[in-house]
Amino acid sequence: MMSIEGFFDIALIIALVALATGQILSMVRLVIGPTTGDRILALDTMVINALGLIIVLGIHQGVKVYFEVALLVAMLGFVSTVALARFLLRGDIIE
């Protein structure tokens, strides 16, 4: 019977592998397109996957500072997605 700590370590590795695979697959979607909306969506998904990687790394190392990094990355990802979409919609970001 596996100990709970061993199960937790295996779950951490599975989560890291899933997030890294997600980064690679959304990068494939970023490259093959075909529309601009798909590329923006793939970039947004990559930012969210990077956020998950930071969170899982914070759990693994037990460092609290990673959560502030995650919050900053979440804000930057939202602002960049909205800026890209607004640029395509209006031809300008701040009118």
């Binding site: 529309t35 601009t36 909306g37 923006i40 969506l41 947004d44 997605t81 909205v82 979409a85 607004r86 395509l88 919609l89």
Partner: peptide, 11 residues
């Protein structure tokens, strides 16, 4: 916003 881009680009 991404849905609005898709509608705007008529994709």
């Amino acid at each position: 916003f991404i849905a609005k881009v898709s509608i705007h680009k008529r994709t």
